[in-house]
Design a binder for these strands. Structure first.
Length: 568
RNA sequence: UGGCCGGUAGUUCAAUUGGUGGAACGCCAGAUUUUGAUUCUGGAGGUCGCAGGUUCGAUCCCUGCCCGGCCAACCA
């Protein structure tokens, strides 16, 4: 089949949500208007799961020429805070998305919400219940068991108005009364068993201050906020599917909606192996000191990933690639990492750094008139595939650091790095041959003696002979010291907390290893937050606050590690 | 126990009104390579959850069953 659409549609994502938008638009719903929203609760920072929702909502708005609003669902003043509002906006901008128009707040709609609640009371569709939370919960019944109607369910509307207004005025204690919708205490969908619309909270709200003594619940606020803003497609995660009946019921029973009622569509949230996407768990990780904070590079929060060096473009590419469906899914974190590598491989500046230094002395290296080893500046490309990245000059001398892994006294099969009698290339420098090595009491090499071929400047010999390995190195006299954090999975279990396990039982005690590294001099001028490739090792980001500290973003693919694994 | 939603390579997703099941990542092999990286080529890998039914023909439609997730906050 070959229609003109094949060409134009190839790159735009297709999924059941977009299919619905296309169908709705074609059917003339909302007069062809498309509007979405991203509605975080300001009680924590964004994580990569939110990135999926953000990309979906903003992506659809853009593809269909519509708008996507940022609206804070700030209906619970006891757990929410202005600092999260600031942080979330910062993270959203970093990810690369700009909301349409002003930032919205559910709290801006408290007045309208209250009026609509009175409208429900007037229609006999809402009532004030004087019972406590525990009693209401018991009366709700259970799965397959009927609910019990509240003794206050048939109150007169006069009494309901009076009580509701006095709740608003602050006459009653927290938790002493609630406003409930009168729906159906026998409904199979538990959400429909007379849900709570308002609870009494004499709490200070960071935006409405002390104006309100009652606060709307999520269910009462969300759909109506969507409707007030003109949302057409209200996208949320699967666990809200049961709430859709409520969402529709509220909208259907309000007379003066400013726009055609929006529709809720649910999709599966993003999960990743070896981590957990839960604000509750995040908070405990931070509070118990398992990580340094919400921006610890091991956290799947956007600020954690940013500090770790994950490029926003790679995160966007990843969440677009995994698509949108209703299947509960857990994505392999390695898939995310492959997107990080793809992005970084293309753009990261190459540098040399030795993480676990082993001393090398070149025994036939020349000395100058003063008896000091001569220093030769060698030119090294900043990117193997991108000439425009230019080159830099790196000092080479007779005393060097190499990686401990790059030398073996007795090389195992298929090992083709340095060992006694074997010649390798020191990248862009010279060919060297190991002679012997000093070892410590445990037999570990402490110093390797080599000879070099003076005719191999630049890394190749005139006779064209080949070597099997090219290694990175740093001149000892010029090395810059740095602290490098090497990160591993936060949780050892691919599915923390599954099969009844306790999430924190699989917390990886060695999720961070810190080493004292030796860097080539150019890295002394590293930019804050920039990601470099340390050749043959991986990608490393400088800490935004201290450029002598590096975080390993992700390692390079490692064939040698695979070979070793297979031999076991 | 009731309701809702799911089940397609190892993993995650596709397959446009029922017509020989594809991609990405991972894995394996080869080529290239002054990063065991990158890049390129090829390969292995499937009882479309199970069983019936409708049909010339079913991953797709119907029924039943099995498995997984969510729901009984005055959280979102």
């Amino acid at each position: 089949m070959s229609t003109p659409n094949d060409e134009t549609d190839r790159d735009s994502p297709s999924d059941f949500v977009r299919d619905k938008v296309v169908a709705d638009t074609a059917a003339g719903k909302y007069h062809g208007r498309v509007q979405t929203r991203f509605p975080p609760e300001p009680n924590g920072f964004l994580h990569i799961g939110h990135a999926k929702s953000i990309a979906l909502n903003f992506g659809i708005a853009e593809e269909f020429g519509g708008e996507c609003h940022l609206r804070f669902d700030d209906t619970n003043p006891e757990t929410e805070d202005q600092s999260y509002i600031d942080g979330i906006q910062e993270d959203l901008a970093w990810l690369g998305f700009s909301p349409s128009g002003e930032t919205k707040f559910a709290s801006d709609y408290f007045g309208q919400l209250y009026e609509w609640a009175e409208q429900l009371i007037a229609k006999g569709l809402a009532y004030v219940d004087d019972q406590d939370a525990e009693t209401i919960s018991e009366q709700r019944g259970g799965f397959g068991q009927p609910g019990v109607e509240s003794p206050y369910r048939e109150r007169s509307s006069d009494e309901n108005f009076d009580l509701f207004r006095r709740m608003k005025a602050g006459e009653f204690e927290d938790g002493s009364r609630v406003l409930r919708a009168k729906i159906d205490m026998q409904a199979d969908n538990m959400q429909l068993r007379d849900p709570v619309l308002y609870r009494i909270r004499h709490a200070h709200h960071y935006r409405t201050l002390d104006e309100w003594n009652i606060y709307p619940t999520y269910d009462w606020a969300h759909g109506q906020s969507d409707a007030i803003e003109g949302t057409t497609h209200s996208l949320c995660t699967l666990e809200f599917a049961d709430h859709r009946g409520l969402y529709d019921w509220f909208l259907a029973n309000i007379d003066d909606l400013p726009y055609e009622a929006p529709e809720q569509t649910e999709f599966a949230r993003l999960n990743l192996t070896h981590t957990v996407m839960s604000k509750r768990v995040f908070r405990r990780l931070v509070d118990d000191g398992h990580v340094d904070g919400w921006d610890d590079p091991r956290m799947p929060t956007l600020r954690g990933l940013r500090r770790r060096g994950y490029p926003p473009a790679a995160i966007r590419a990843f969440v677009e690639h995994i698509g949108v469906a209703k299947t509960n899914s857990v994505h392999d974190i390695e898939l995310l990492e492959s997107f990080i590598r793809t992005e970084l491989n293309e753009h990261a500046t190459r540098r040399m750094a030795v993480l676990r230094p082993l001393q090398v002395t070149i025994t036939n290296w020349p000395t100058d008139a003063g008896g000091q080893p001569e220093v030769v500046m060698v030119e090294v490309a900043n990117h193997p595939k991108d000439e425009s990245a230019g080159t830099r000059m790196v000092p080479f001398s007779g005393e060097l650091w190499i990686e401990q892994d790059d030398f073996k006294l007795e090389p195992p099969p298929k090992y083709f790095r340095l060992s006694p009698g074997r010649e390798v290339r020191l990248r862009a420098g010279f060919l060297v041959t190991a002679v012997d090595a000093d070892v410590d009491a445990d037999g570990h090499p402490t110093l390797v003696r080599c000879t070099y071929d003076p005719a191999s400047a630049g890394g190749s010999a005139p006779d064209g002979r080949k070597v099997k390995a090219t290694m990175h190195w740093v001149s000892a006299a010029h090395a810059v010291d740095a602290t490098v954090h090497l990160y591993d999975r936060l949780f050892t279990d691919p599915h923390p907390g599954s099969d009844g396990a306790e999430v924190f039982d699989s917390l990886n005690p060695s999720s961070r290893e810190t080493v004292a590294a030796k860097l080539e001099p150019a890295l002394a001028e590293a930019n804050p937050g920039e990601v470099y490739q340390f050749e043959r090792l991986g990608y490393f980001a400088t800490d935004p606050g201290d450029t002598s500290v590096f975080h390993r973003t992700v390692g390079l693919r490692d064939e040698w590690a695979n070979i070793q694994k297979r031999r076991q």
